[in-house]
Design a protein around this nucleic acid. Structure first.
Lengths: 251, 251
DNA sequence: CAGTGGTCTAGACCACAAC
DNA sequence: TTGTGGTCTAGACCACTGA
C-alpha cells in the first residue's frame, strides 16, 4: 500500500470518527509532514485525494478545513405534465427558477452521447439552446439546461431563435403539427467537467446530477433532447411510490 | 493559469475533438514532457485531472488510453408497488438481480445523513442490513444495498436476522402491525468513497448513483431507510411522464 | 504583510504487465 | 526482460488572503 494511500485512509477515518468535526481545521501541511514522517508532496497527494472525495477544502492561508455538507433540496418530479394558459409545467411544485442570462442558440456539432438518443450521426450539426437557470433574485446559477434539436426539425424556424414566445418550444412544436408530444426522463450521475464546475460554482468533490429529458413527436420521432445539470450535493430528485395491491402484472 | 491546467485543457480539447479517439493511446509521459516543455510532475498533474474526469485511463506499461464509455442501462422505476404471492416488487421491469453474498446484519452507529431521515440522533445505534447485489450468473457486483432500521423497531425481531423469510422485511413489518407501508424515493448523485469504488469495481472518474428509499409505517413513523448505490456510468433511472391536459392545479 | 496552500523542477527507485 | 506508469524526495518560488 502506497504511503499516501495509508495517510489518506488515516485522515479519512479520523474525520469520519469525529476527531476533526466539520468546519474545523486539520493540521497544516508542514505539520502533517512531520507527523507522518514524509515529504510534503506525499502529504499533498493524500490531501488531494480527500479533497476529490469532498471531505476537505483547502483554503490558502486559512488552512485546510473539513467540509460541511449543506442540506440537500428535494426536486419533486410530477408524473403528469400540467398545462395552463402560459405553457407547460413539468413540475407543479417547482422552485421559482428563472433564466439568469438570455438563452444562447447556436448551430453546432452534437455531443457523442446525445447523438445516439437524437438518432443522428455523431458530430452532425444540430440546434443547441443553452441557458443558465438560477434564483430570480440572487441570480445564483443552479442549473445548466441545454436543448438539442435536429436541424431537420428546428433550422430556419422559430425554434432556432433565442425567444420562442409564450409557452416555449413545446407549444411551438405542437403548433408545427408535431403534437401531441410525449416525454420520458432519465436521472444520471456524472463527474462534472471543468466548465460545468465553473458555471455551477461546484467545489471539488461534488458530483453532477443530470436529468435527460427526451421529447417525441406523435409519430415517434425524437424532436428534442434536454440535458439539465445541477449540483449533486445540493439537489435530489424525489418521487412518491404508490401502493398497488393487485397481483404482479404479467411480463 | 497554471501550466498543468493549460496542458489539461489542451489534451481535453484534443480528446473531445477526436484527435485521440476512444480506445487509442495518448503519447507517453516522457513524450508529453518534451512536447509541452515541462517536468514530468506537471504532465502527471494534468493527466491526473483528466483521469479524475473519466477521460483517460492510465495502464502500467500499456500507456495511457482514452477511455471508452460503456452504454448506460436504464433502470425503470415504477410508480406502483406490485405484490405477488412472494413479496413486493418495486420494479416490474427489474433486471434479474440477486444477492451475491449473504446479507450482513449488524448493530452500529447510524451515518450522519441517514440519521436525519430516520429521525434518530447522529451516532445512535441502529440495525444495519447490507447486501451486495449482482448478476445471478456472473456474480459481478452491480449494487450495494444498505437498509437502516431504528433499534426500537428492529432489535430483537426477525428484522435483525440475516434471513427475514419469504417476502423480506416489508412483509414482516406489515405482519408486525406496522402496515400499510408507504414509500418515497430520492435519486442522488455523489462521489464514491474508496470502499465503494472497490466494492463496485468503479474506475476513477465515475460518479455514484444513489437511490434513497424511505419506508413509513401507517402512523407516519420512518421504519426503514434503504440506500442503494450503483455505478453512475452504467446505470440511469428512468421514468415516463404522462400528459395531463387539464388546467394547472391550484397551488 | 506574513503564512498558508499552489505550482514546479530534477532526479531517483519501484512494480507491474506486455512482450 | 523491459518499458511504462506509480511513488517519493528535497527544494524552490509564487500568489492569494486572512490576521
Amino acid at each position: 500500500m502506497a504511503r499516501w494511500h495509508a495517510i489518506a485512509a488515516e485522515l479519512r477515518e479520523a474525520i469520519r470518527s469525529g476527531a476533526y468535526p466539520p468546519g474545523t481545521k486539520i493540521p497544516k501541511e508542514e505539520e502533517l509532514e512531520r507527523q507522518f514522517g514524509c515529504s510534503r508532496t506525499t502529504v499533498r497527494r493524500a490531501v488531494a485525494q480527500l479533497t476529490a472525495e469532498g471531505l476537505l477544502q483547502p483554503v490558502r492561508k486559512g488552512g485546510t478545513t473539513v467540509r460541511e455538507h449543506p442540506p440537500r433540496q428535494r426536486l419533486t418530479r410530477a408524473r403528469q405534465v400540467y398545462r395552463d394558459e402560459r405553457g407547460y409545467y413539468f413540475d407543479p411544485t417547482a422552485q421559482p427558477w428563472a433564466a439568469v442570462e438570455t438563452p444562447t442558440v447556436s448551430l453546432g456539432p452534437v455531443p457523442y452521447d446525445i447523438a445516439r438518443i437524437l438518432g443522428v450521426e455523431p458530430g452532425e450539426e444540430v440546434v443547441i439552446r443553452s441557458r443558465v437557470m438560477g434564483h430570480p433574485d440572487t441570480k445564483t446559477p443552479t442549473q445548466l439546461a441545454t436543448s438539442y434539436l435536429p436541424a431537420s426539425v428546428a433550422r430556419g424556424t422559430v425554434l432556432a431563435e433565442p425567444d420562442t414566445g409564450p409557452g416555449g418550444i413545446y407549444d411551438r412544436l405542437e403548433e408545427m403539427g408535431r403534437g401531441p408530444l410525449a416525454w420520458s426522463e432519465s436521472v444520471v450521475a456524472a463527474i462534472p467537467t471543468e466548465p460545468e464546475q465553473e458555471a455551477l460554482h461546484l467545489p471539488p468533490g461534488v458530483a453532477l446530477l443530470r436529468i435527460v429529458r427526451v421529447t417525441r413527436a406523435s409519430d415517434g420521432q425524437v424532436v428534442e433532447v434536454n440535458d439539465t445539470r445541477m449540483s449533486g450535493e445540493l439537489w435530489e430528485i424525489g418521487y412518491q411510490l404508490e401502493r398497488h395491491q393487485s397481483a404482479h402484472p404479467s411480463s
